[in-house]
């Protein structure tokens, strides 16, 4: 199937009206055609997606993020770049049409805040990308994919082991640096006993403290790892 994206003006209209259209978000099937009264609200791109692309919609919702992240990333791999993957028109269309079933299951649109942050982009920063219901799946895999590992998604699995990990790492500026992010995730892989929100917050605080006086980006993975070990494992 050809990937479709919203026209900018249609996206703006839908977003503007979102707070007045909570009823539409309670429906079990997509409703865009009806809302736009048959008008041309999307553009078809030249990007082909697999026809059989679907997302898991059974089990504990947050447990499906690992598998769904891989499915979305594989479907888009080599077809979009990071700038395209920061396009609200793309992900918002997928949220409202292609993956509507998944969206209402994973992110029940009961409150206006949930609709804006999970079905649209709430703001311009990378935080919006890690919140939108579908874009987050692509970005989780993109930021952690590592071809040099036997399982390239090994770090994706660590990131999504707990919502607290991705929340703490990706909503901090240092999480944008691939070396830092991968080093922290690898530390958690090697030390599975380090778990729980308190521990993750402690790691983030440790890195923030270090980043306050040093340029974290200038430190290689070994130095970052040594520092985390010394503070978290008290070595």
């Amino acid at each position: 199937m050809k990937l479709k994206v919203f026209k900018q003006e249609s996206l703006e209209q839908l977003k503007r009206d979102a707070s007045k259209q909570i009823d539409l978000y309670q429906r079990t099937t997509p409703w865009l055609n009806e809302y736009f009264r048959g008008g041309a609200y999307y553009c078809e791109t030249q990007i082909n997606l697999p026809d059989n692309l679907s997302l898991l919609t059974e089990g504990e919702p947050s447990d499906t993020d690992k598998e769904n992240s891989k499915r979305i990333y594989e479907a888009f791999r080599g077809r979009i770049n990071p700038v395209q993957a920061a396009e609200e028109r793309l992900w918002t269309y997928l949220c409202h049409e292609t993956f509507w079933d998944y969206m209402i299951w994973r992110w029940p649109p009961k409150k206006e805040g949930t609709i804006i942050s999970r079905y649209f982009f709430d703001g311009e920063s990378s935080r919006a990308l890690s919140r939108n219901g579908i874009s987050r799946l692509w970005w989780f895999a993109h930021l952690t994919y590592d071809e040099s590992r036997n399982d390239p998604y090994e770090l994706t699995n660590i990131l999504l082991y707990s919502q607290d990990i991705q929340h703490n790492l990706l909503e901090r500026n240092f999480g944008r640096n691939r070396t830092i992010l991968h080093t922290v995730l690898d530390f958690l892989r090697v030390h599975p006993e380090i778990k729980g929100k308190e521990q993750y917050v402690k790691i983030v605080k440790t890195l923030n403290r270090l980043g306050g006086v040093r340029l974290l980006d200038a430190l290689g993975p070994e130095r970052i790892k040594e520092y985390i070990e010394s503070k978290i494992l008290n070595r």
């Binding site: 920061a86 311009e124 240092f174 980006d217």
Partner: peptide, 16 residues
């Protein structure tokens, strides 16, 4: 070391 550090909040880009 002298370096320029680039950060783009919109695309998770942070490189020196």
């Amino acid at each position: 070391v002298l370096a320029l550090h680039f950060e783009c909040g919109r695309t998770f880009f942070r490189e020196k």
